[in-house]
Design a protein around this nucleic acid. Structure first.
Lengths: 225, 225
DNA sequence: CCAAAAGTGTTCCGTCTACACCCATGG
DNA sequence: CCATGGGTGTAGACGGAACACTTTTGG
């Protein structure tokens, strides 16, 4: 099938991280201004080259860790991008990974140090090279998967209110959801469990805090929210 | 974000084609025995290295063309595979593409020349390296997308009977579908159009031949079969 | 005349959708 | 006492699933 290695040329391979967060009822993306050429000064995703001693996902984990200080983050491959001129300097093929993190967890210091910041997804500027396309593809992926996989919890703290959960859904889907219908659906899912705790910050009355129960999810056949 | 090129190492990048066909009411895959090391003699997908002057999808198109003689084939990226030792010889990162072709169209000569043949998907042998994983991922993709995109037509000739179409659906989904319900759904889709032609080969009574109308599909909002 | 595939409707049930009001509390 | 967000139920529409018989004709 494939010829011998020697006849062929090697290329640079990088990973780019599309880091989603959720704050102030909005989906956010972690982006920064490129600090090197080519594209210096342009808004860009955060990425890095793949090393010889790591797999693609390991590279993505490492890059994300170096940026946010976070490990064991929910990550999904978005796809490989390989247009010839996508990088103006050299031929670079990149594999985009989408990460969902809880904004409260990440290391502000580290992010500032790398010159990245949170930007509202609906106010996303033009990004370097094909990075906007990667973001679009990532959102399409999230929208498709949100009703099949327990994605949303990764954007929330361990304990969350149903209103928060609904806001995440609305932000990802880009449309409003009826509160009663949403809560009805949530009630029918047994791996979203009510805790005895009450959140008093967001409302005077106080809202019940819920938790995603991983064990229940694992046993529990399929997801249908 | 990314460092300078010079500090980093390059790797081989290849594309692998997961070529699906449909014949004798079964989904088939085009695979062959590797004719070179490493892995000589093992069953394998057909692939090739990405050249400097082509994008990933162009590489996949070229590889598929060289194998089947087909152009403008329906192709979808399945994902990048980058485990360190996935290729026993050298570090090779590969991007898998899934192709759907009409078995009648491909060039038998070329395929024989490359030593590949059609194998029933449900009798798939162990494949070289991580190729089985690629196939699994491709099927998952097809199953997810079949109700959202007009995939099935790519596996059929220009004109097809409803029974054929249903068999494609059943093969991809791996489950039986009720004939009346299926035909009801098809009738509600206006870009699957009945032609005046009758197929007399598969039955004594004869079956109406249908056609996928691309223009209608383009206009026609969404797909829901 | 019969085997083999084509073709055709109705009923039921569960799911999704639309929709508006009371509750608890901090300030 | 009132503004703010939390919490609750029902009825109608819709879509998916189950289900069996008649038609045509080549051999």
């Amino acid at each position: 099938m494939t010829g011998y290695y020697g006849e062929h040329s090697k290329v640079f391979v990088s990973v780019d991280c599309i880091v989603f967060g959720f704050d102030h009822n909005k989906l956010k993306l972690l982006i920064g201004k490129r600090q090197m050429d080519p594209g210096r000064g342009e808004w860009s995703l955060y990425g890095g080259f793949v090393r010889e001693d790591e797999s693609l996902i390991e590279a993505a984990d490492r890059v994300l860790y170096s940026l946010t200080g976070l490990k064991d983050v929910y990550m999904k491959q978005v796809g490989a991008f390989g247009a010839i001129d996508r990088d103006p300097g050299e031929r670079v093929i990149t594999v985009a990974y989408c990460a969902l993190i809880n904004v409260k967890d990440y290391d502000t210091q580290l992010c500032e140090q790398h010159g990245v910041e949170w930007v509202n997804l609906d106010e996303l500027p033009h990004l370097y090279s094909d990075h906007n396309e990667m973001v679009r593809k990532a959102i399409t992926l999230l929208r498709r998967r949100i009703s099949t996989e327990p994605l949303s919890f990764n954007l929330l703290p361990e304990l969350f209110t149903l209103t928060q959960l609904q806001l995440v859904y609305e932000a990802i889907l880009g449309e409003q959801i009826d509160k009663r219908n949403f809560r009805k659906r949530v009630k029918s899912i047994d791996f979203i469990e009510k805790t005895p705790y009450i959140d008093k910050l967001s409302s005077k009355r106080g809202a019940a805090l819920y938790r995603f129960n991983r064990e229940m999810f694992a046993n529990d056949s399929y997801f249908k929210l």
